[in-house]
Amino acid sequence: MHISEGFLPLTHCAAWACASAPFLAHAVSKLNASRDKRYLLAASAGYLFTLTALKLPSVAGSSSHPTGVALGTVLAGPAVMPALSLIVLLFQALLTAHGGLTTLGANVFSLGIAGPWTTWLLWRFALRCGLGDKPAIMLATAIGSLATYACTSLQLALAHPDATGGVAAAFARFAAVFAVTQLPVAAVEAVFTVAVLRALVNSGGVRIDGWEAWAQR
Protein backbone atom coordinates (compact mmCIF):
# COMPACT_ATOMS: atom_id res chain seq x y z
CA MET A 1 0.00 0.00 0.00
CA HIS A 2 3.04 2.26 -0.06
CA ILE A 3 2.89 4.76 -2.90
CA SER A 4 6.46 5.66 -3.77
CA GLU A 5 7.91 9.06 -4.48
CA GLY A 6 6.99 10.46 -7.88
CA PHE A 7 3.95 8.31 -8.59
CA LEU A 8 1.41 10.94 -7.56
CA PRO A 9 1.23 14.48 -8.98
CA LEU A 10 2.09 17.13 -6.44
CA THR A 11 -1.49 18.44 -6.49
CA HIS A 12 -2.73 14.98 -5.48
CA CYS A 13 -0.05 14.75 -2.78
CA ALA A 14 -1.24 18.08 -1.38
CA ALA A 15 -4.91 17.06 -1.57
CA TRP A 16 -4.33 13.79 0.30
CA ALA A 17 -2.20 15.57 2.88
CA CYS A 18 -5.03 18.06 3.42
CA ALA A 19 -7.53 15.20 3.70
CA SER A 20 -5.37 13.45 6.30
CA ALA A 21 -4.51 16.58 8.30
CA PRO A 22 -7.72 16.89 10.36
CA PHE A 23 -7.62 13.17 11.22
CA LEU A 24 -3.99 13.55 12.27
CA ALA A 25 -4.72 16.61 14.40
CA HIS A 26 -7.58 14.75 16.09
CA ALA A 27 -5.34 11.71 16.61
CA VAL A 28 -2.66 13.79 18.31
CA SER A 29 -5.23 15.38 20.64
CA LYS A 30 -6.62 11.92 21.42
CA LEU A 31 -3.12 10.66 22.18
CA ASN A 32 -2.55 13.54 24.59
CA ALA A 33 -5.87 12.79 26.28
CA SER A 34 -5.15 9.06 26.48
CA ARG A 35 -2.11 9.05 28.73
CA ASP A 36 -3.74 6.38 30.86
CA LYS A 37 -3.81 4.17 27.77
CA ARG A 38 -0.15 4.67 26.90
CA TYR A 39 0.74 1.03 27.42
CA LEU A 40 -2.05 -0.13 25.16
CA LEU A 41 -0.92 2.46 22.62
CA ALA A 42 2.64 1.15 22.92
CA ALA A 43 1.38 -2.38 22.31
CA SER A 44 -0.62 -1.13 19.31
CA ALA A 45 2.38 0.72 17.88
CA GLY A 46 4.64 -2.26 18.53
CA TYR A 47 2.25 -4.55 16.68
CA LEU A 48 2.02 -2.06 13.79
CA PHE A 49 5.82 -1.70 13.57
CA THR A 50 6.41 -5.44 13.65
CA LEU A 51 3.72 -6.55 11.23
CA THR A 52 4.45 -3.93 8.58
CA ALA A 53 8.07 -5.09 8.61
CA LEU A 54 7.03 -8.60 7.56
CA LYS A 55 7.14 -9.15 3.85
CA LEU A 56 5.33 -12.43 3.28
CA PRO A 57 5.44 -14.56 0.15
CA SER A 58 2.01 -14.80 -1.40
CA VAL A 59 0.36 -16.27 -4.47
CA ALA A 60 0.86 -15.30 -8.13
CA GLY A 61 4.57 -14.61 -7.68
CA SER A 62 4.01 -11.64 -5.38
CA SER A 63 4.82 -10.76 -1.82
CA SER A 64 3.17 -8.30 0.54
CA HIS A 65 2.92 -7.31 4.20
CA PRO A 66 0.06 -7.25 6.73
CA THR A 67 -1.23 -3.80 7.72
CA GLY A 68 -1.24 -4.40 11.49
CA VAL A 69 -3.83 -1.72 12.23
CA ALA A 70 -6.61 -3.93 13.62
CA LEU A 71 -5.07 -4.48 17.06
CA GLY A 72 -4.68 -0.76 17.73
CA THR A 73 -8.12 -0.05 16.29
CA VAL A 74 -9.75 -2.45 18.73
CA LEU A 75 -7.57 -1.57 21.74
CA ALA A 76 -7.40 2.20 21.39
CA GLY A 77 -9.96 3.11 18.73
CA PRO A 78 -9.55 4.18 15.11
CA ALA A 79 -9.12 7.86 15.97
CA VAL A 80 -5.54 7.42 17.20
CA MET A 81 -4.38 5.26 14.30
CA PRO A 82 -3.43 8.13 11.91
CA ALA A 83 -0.75 9.27 14.38
CA LEU A 84 0.66 5.77 14.88
CA SER A 85 0.59 5.16 11.13
CA LEU A 86 2.38 8.45 10.46
CA ILE A 87 5.26 7.39 12.72
CA VAL A 88 5.61 4.01 10.98
CA LEU A 89 5.26 5.47 7.48
CA LEU A 90 7.80 8.21 8.20
CA PHE A 91 10.26 5.61 9.47
CA GLN A 92 9.73 3.50 6.35
CA ALA A 93 9.96 6.46 3.94
CA LEU A 94 13.22 7.66 5.48
CA LEU A 95 14.95 4.36 6.15
CA THR A 96 13.47 1.52 4.10
CA ALA A 97 12.60 3.32 0.83
CA HIS A 98 8.99 2.21 1.22
CA GLY A 99 6.59 5.01 0.38
CA GLY A 100 7.83 8.57 0.11
CA LEU A 101 7.86 11.93 1.80
CA THR A 102 5.61 13.74 -0.66
CA THR A 103 3.22 10.75 -0.72
CA LEU A 104 3.07 10.56 3.07
CA GLY A 105 -0.40 12.14 3.23
CA ALA A 106 -1.82 9.63 0.76
CA ASN A 107 -0.22 6.70 2.56
CA VAL A 108 -1.46 7.92 5.96
CA PHE A 109 -4.95 8.14 4.51
CA SER A 110 -4.92 4.53 3.32
CA LEU A 111 -3.10 2.91 6.28
CA GLY A 112 -4.15 5.20 9.13
CA ILE A 113 -7.68 6.23 8.17
CA ALA A 114 -9.31 3.98 5.54
CA GLY A 115 -8.07 0.70 7.05
CA PRO A 116 -8.77 1.40 10.75
CA TRP A 117 -12.17 3.03 10.21
CA THR A 118 -13.30 0.20 7.93
CA THR A 119 -12.12 -2.30 10.52
CA TRP A 120 -13.85 -0.51 13.39
CA LEU A 121 -17.15 0.12 11.59
CA LEU A 122 -17.33 -3.42 10.29
CA TRP A 123 -16.43 -4.88 13.69
CA ARG A 124 -19.14 -2.87 15.48
CA PHE A 125 -21.67 -3.61 12.73
CA ALA A 126 -20.91 -7.33 12.82
CA LEU A 127 -21.30 -7.41 16.61
CA ARG A 128 -24.61 -5.57 16.33
CA CYS A 129 -25.78 -8.09 13.75
CA GLY A 130 -25.14 -10.85 16.28
CA LEU A 131 -21.98 -12.25 14.76
CA GLY A 132 -19.74 -13.76 17.44
CA ASP A 133 -16.76 -11.80 18.73
CA LYS A 134 -14.21 -14.04 17.10
CA PRO A 135 -15.63 -14.08 13.55
CA ALA A 136 -16.53 -10.38 13.84
CA ILE A 137 -12.98 -9.30 14.52
CA MET A 138 -11.55 -11.73 11.97
CA LEU A 139 -13.89 -10.44 9.28
CA ALA A 140 -13.23 -6.81 10.19
CA THR A 141 -9.44 -7.31 10.23
CA ALA A 142 -9.38 -9.03 6.85
CA ILE A 143 -11.72 -6.54 5.17
CA GLY A 144 -9.92 -3.62 6.83
CA SER A 145 -6.62 -4.88 5.42
CA LEU A 146 -8.16 -5.15 1.95
CA ALA A 147 -9.76 -1.71 2.33
CA THR A 148 -6.31 -0.21 2.85
CA TYR A 149 -5.19 -1.60 -0.47
CA ALA A 150 -8.47 -0.61 -2.15
CA CYS A 151 -7.83 2.96 -1.00
CA THR A 152 -4.32 2.85 -2.49
CA SER A 153 -5.79 1.54 -5.75
CA LEU A 154 -8.26 4.44 -5.81
CA GLN A 155 -5.50 6.98 -5.11
CA LEU A 156 -3.44 5.61 -7.99
CA ALA A 157 -6.46 5.36 -10.29
CA LEU A 158 -7.36 9.00 -9.67
CA ALA A 159 -3.80 9.99 -10.58
CA HIS A 160 -3.46 7.59 -13.51
CA PRO A 161 -6.90 6.97 -15.06
CA ASP A 162 -7.13 4.45 -17.87
CA ALA A 163 -7.09 6.02 -21.33
CA THR A 164 -10.34 4.36 -22.33
CA GLY A 165 -12.04 3.14 -19.13
CA GLY A 166 -11.18 6.09 -16.93
CA VAL A 167 -10.77 5.92 -13.16
CA ALA A 168 -12.99 2.84 -12.73
CA ALA A 169 -10.98 0.73 -15.17
CA ALA A 170 -7.68 1.84 -13.65
CA PHE A 171 -8.98 1.09 -10.15
CA ALA A 172 -10.03 -2.41 -11.24
CA ARG A 173 -6.60 -3.03 -12.77
CA PHE A 174 -4.64 -1.96 -9.68
CA ALA A 175 -7.04 -3.56 -7.21
CA ALA A 176 -6.86 -6.87 -9.08
CA VAL A 177 -3.09 -7.03 -8.57
CA PHE A 178 -3.34 -6.11 -4.89
CA ALA A 179 -6.34 -8.36 -4.20
CA VAL A 180 -4.70 -11.57 -5.41
CA THR A 181 -1.62 -10.93 -3.29
CA GLN A 182 -3.35 -9.52 -0.25
CA LEU A 183 -6.20 -12.01 0.24
CA PRO A 184 -4.04 -14.77 1.81
CA VAL A 185 -2.01 -12.21 3.78
CA ALA A 186 -5.22 -10.62 5.11
CA ALA A 187 -6.53 -14.04 6.17
CA VAL A 188 -3.31 -14.77 8.07
CA GLU A 189 -3.42 -11.33 9.68
CA ALA A 190 -7.03 -11.87 10.79
CA VAL A 191 -6.20 -15.14 12.55
CA PHE A 192 -3.05 -13.70 14.13
CA THR A 193 -4.81 -10.56 15.38
CA VAL A 194 -7.63 -12.54 16.95
CA ALA A 195 -5.11 -14.79 18.69
CA VAL A 196 -3.27 -11.80 20.16
CA LEU A 197 -6.48 -10.05 21.24
CA ARG A 198 -7.84 -13.24 22.74
CA ALA A 199 -4.68 -13.69 24.78
CA LEU A 200 -4.91 -10.11 26.04
CA VAL A 201 -8.58 -10.35 26.95
CA ASN A 202 -8.33 -13.75 28.59
CA SER A 203 -5.39 -12.59 30.69
CA GLY A 204 -7.73 -10.13 32.38
CA GLY A 205 -5.35 -7.23 31.88
CA VAL A 206 -7.21 -5.70 28.96
CA ARG A 207 -10.92 -5.03 28.68
CA ILE A 208 -12.54 -4.50 25.31
CA ASP A 209 -16.19 -3.59 24.75
CA GLY A 210 -18.20 -6.62 23.72
CA TRP A 211 -15.39 -9.08 24.41
CA GLU A 212 -16.19 -10.10 27.96
CA ALA A 213 -18.73 -12.67 26.85
CA TRP A 214 -16.26 -14.24 24.47
CA ALA A 215 -13.52 -14.30 27.10
CA GLN A 216 -15.77 -16.25 29.46
CA ARG A 217 -16.61 -18.92 26.92
Binding site: H2, K55, P57, S58, G61, S62, S63, S64, Y149, T181
Partner: peptide, 8 residues
Protein backbone atom coordinates in the same frame (compact mmCIF):
# COMPACT_ATOMS: atom_id res chain seq x y z
CA UNK B 1 8.49 -13.01 -5.73
CA UNK B 2 7.91 -9.37 -6.50
CA UNK B 3 6.52 -6.98 -3.91
CA UNK B 4 2.90 -6.13 -4.78
CA UNK B 5 3.68 -2.40 -4.49
CA UNK B 6 6.51 -2.76 -7.00
CA UNK B 7 4.27 -4.82 -9.29
CA UNK B 8 1.68 -2.04 -9.36
Amino acid sequence: RVDADERV
